[in-house]
Design a protein around this nucleic acid. Sequence first.
DNA 1: TTCTATTTGTGCGTATGTATT
DNA 2: CAATACATACGCACAAATAGA
Lengths: 256, 256
Amino acid sequence: MPPDTSRPEETRAGGAAGGRATRRSMSWKAVAAKLDGEIAAGKYRETMRLPAETVLARALGISRHTLRRAIAALEVRGLLYCVPHKGVFLAPLRLSFPLGAKTRFADAVTPTGLIPSGQLISQQRCIPPPEIARQLRIAKRSEVIELQVVRAANGKPLSYATIWLPAERFGRIGDLFASVGELHEALILHGVPEFRRSELRVTARPASEVERRILGLEAGGFVLVVESTSRDPTGEPTHLSLFRFGAERVEITIEL
Amino acid sequence: MPPDTSRPEETRAGGAAGGRATRRSMSWKAVAAKLDGEIAAGKYRETMRLPAETVLARALGISRHTLRRAIAALEVRGLLYCVPHKGVFLAPLRLSFPLGAKTRFADAVTPTGLIPSGQLISQQRCIPPPEIARQLRIAKRSEVIELQVVRAANGKPLSYATIWLPAERFGRIGDLFASVGELHEALILHGVPEFRRSELRVTARPASEVERRILGLEAGGFVLVVESTSRDPTGEPTHLSLFRFGAERVEITIEL
DNA sequence: TTCTATTTGTGCGTATGTATT
DNA sequence: CAATACATACGCACAAATAGA
């Protein structure tokens, strides 16, 4: 992007950022701050393309170099993103998704005023991959219930989750989930009054075709993958869940 | 993908997966399990391209349809990834990066046998964006120290972090960091015996040009962004850090 | 540059075993 | 019992993108 420097930010403060104005035009920092303010004030809309660099630079009375330096700074902060030969776009607002030891999906979504919903896409009883069995601390060839759940806010799909539970203990979890529409409630009906996530593993990777279709992502989209193990009060693993979020739509917040 | 169903997995077990073998060829599940085992056993190497679908299907004695169904299942689990018209590749192993309330970078890397290093790229004193000031609970126009740090394992860049600290309290943090090479130590020398991360915010987005260059990512690469606020024992925010990881290289694990 | 071979993505038609109605 | 629905599996064919000559 900026061919004018090999460093991400300048090494020393210097410049004409805040001091006396000995130059007529703005420093790249002033430009970045100005654009930052305009974005915060809502001048540009979500995912909207900004004016072409030449146009915007002329409007601000600065060189294209300076503008590009400012844009690069905002891009690193995640406010803008650049698509080569197409333009500069405003990064989409992300739905903040709190994920703590006890968070339920509904708790995460309702504060935003959106209406949460959970739908069981499929359930099946099967022998899990060895890694899943290990994490659930069950025998290698014992069965699990595998649930596929899509959760949405205001009808727009937010996450696509696969959840594994020991079949011996949670034989009817699928039907219970289907009737109450919440994993938390279904587990209570199964005799687990409380459970806690004990560990989270977070990665990001390109979305598969299935994930793109379910989450409504376009080609080249990424998913944010959150895997977690939950345990009942005795420390026994109750279930393992693999959440996939459209990366550009959410921000996951974790309380420590 | 599989045009034979609108669902990601079949709803019921059914099929001829485990039962008596009345057919000669394997079910797609058996194929997935076989490939899973071969991958776990190390038959294919990291990021290696698998044989072409036609070749692999013939070798396994199944149709290309069945093979594709199995590949789709493994792709959703993150073991493989497909690049259109190029091939199917083994997903790269990820460096697990534990990020808890008190984790230090060195603690995260040393168990792997890799040699950690941290390099201060730049430091500067400046007025931060309003959002940063708010999170640090300092006056809107008071100064902060902004550090740019690249951390590497065995010389390969792992993370690129921007760290903001109140300038009034941590005026010499940059020089201290440069001499000891660890933020934790530098903060101790600044009179902060202990600090804890109180909250994490995790997102993923396309890497900017700067990030690609620093982290050595290729075009189209994604960064996993982890933002966290740390506080001293009195609850006063000490610093705010913005970590960027090459998404395909790491897995972040969080103890709750 | 154009041409070609390779490879994945997608669609259709058909057959079969299992489960439900 | 039969009729139906469905997941599964196979073969063939073509489109679209890529890589190399």
